[in-house]
Design a protein around this nucleic acid. Sequence first.
DNA 1: CAGGATCCTGTAGGATACTG
DNA 2: CAGTATCCTACAGGATCCTG
Lengths: 116, 116
Amino acid sequence: MDTSTIVRNEAQEIQALQDTLYVIGGKWKLPIMNSLCNGNTRYREIERSIPGITTRMLSKELKELELNGIISRTVHGTSPVLIEYKTTDYCKTFSAILLEMIKWGIEHKKHITKKG
Amino acid sequence: MDTSTIVRNEAQEIQALQDTLYVIGGKWKLPIMNSLCNGNTRYREIERSIPGITTRMLSKELKELELNGIISRTVHGTSPVLIEYKTTDYCKTFSAILLEMIKWGIEHKKHITKKG
DNA sequence: CAGGATCCTGTAGGATACTG
DNA sequence: CAGTATCCTACAGGATCCTG
C-alpha cells in the first residue's frame, strides 16, 4: 500500500477529524495529556499542575482517556493505595500534534497581540 | 533567538494548548477549515460538504474563524451577491496539525475496531 | 491520597422558519 | 444564494461536600 496514492475523501477526512476531536475534545484532555507527558503521575499531582480543574472533571477525563487507550492507570500497594497514571505508547502517536498545538498557541498569542 | 533553548514552562504550555483549542474548538471549525482547504469557497458549497451542519452553526463559525484571521470573506458582484470564503496564509500555519489530526483519526478508527 | 455523589448553570449546538 | 431570527435542550463543566 503506497500512502502517496491515497485518494483523499472529503467526507472521510471530516469524519476522521471529528473522531480525533471526540477523543481529545473538551477543555481538559490535552492539558491532562501534557501534564502526564511532563512527568506527573499521581492524581493530586496532575490536579495541582492544571490550574482550574476540579476533581470531578479530572477523574471523568482520566477515565475517558484510559478507555481510549491514551493513558494507563496502575494500582500500587494495598493499604495506602498508590495510583500511577502514565501515558501509553499509543499516546505518543499524539505527541507531534500536541507539540504543534502548543507552538501554534504561543505563536497565535503573539499574532493577535501584535495587531491589537 | 535560538528555539532549541526555549525553556519549557508547564503552565505556559497548558495555556497555549487551551488558546489553540479555543480558536479551533467546537465541533465544526476544523471541518470547515478542511472544507475550505479542499477548494470549497461558497457558503452552500461548504454547507453541503459538511454533513449535519446547520446554517446557524456555519455562519457563526465562519464569523469566528474570520475574526481570528483564519479565513477571509470577500464579496463579489452586486446584484446576485457572491460571497467567497478562502483560507488565509495564516490558516496555512495550521495545515500541519490538520493533516496530522486527520491521519490520527483514521488510524484511531483502525486501532479501536481492531480490539473490539 | 484518590476519587465519588450531588446539585446547578451556561452555552454549544440542533430544529425550523424566514429574508433580501 | 447567503445568510438571520427564534426557540429549545442536552450536556459539558463548575462548586461543594463526602468517603474508604
